[in-house]
């Protein structure tokens, strides 16, 4: 068990915690934050893999993930604002108008 592998485990922990966050959080904003948590976990994983295999592509990938995360957050927050405008503030449990 090297320290990089330990970091890998932490990264998985972060990823799964993000998933858990998406599952349990009520607030739309916190949902978004949880997805960021997942991406952070992925980044950590990439960096630790970089260390293990001895390369730099992981970090490059992580950089792109940062960009992607940023754009998702931007759109997501835009949507949250739009939702708020249209209906007043809604929790995630209430965005259930589209359903079977």
């Amino acid at each position: 068990m090297t320290i990089e592998k330990a970091y890998m485990l932490i990264s998985i922990f972060l990823f799964l915690s993000g998933l858990l966050g998406v599952i349990i959080r009520k607030n739309l904003i916190t949902l978004l934050i949880s997805t960021e948590l997942m991406l952070n976990g992925v980044n950590l994983a990439l960096v630790s893999v970089d260390r293990i295999v001895g390369g730099i592509e992981g970090q490059v990938f992580a950089l792109f993930i940062l960009a992607v995360a940023a754009s998702e957050v931007a759109v997501g927050l835009g949507l949250i604002v739009a939702l708020f405008r249209l209906r007043g503030y809604e929790g995630s449990s209430e965005i259930t108008h589209l359903r079977d």
Partner: peptide, 20 residues
Amino acid sequence: LLMGAVATSMFSLGSAFYYA
């Protein structure tokens, strides 16, 4: 978007393992 974000992170994690 939210489901898509989950997919994105899954894909990235998968890429990380692929890389590993």
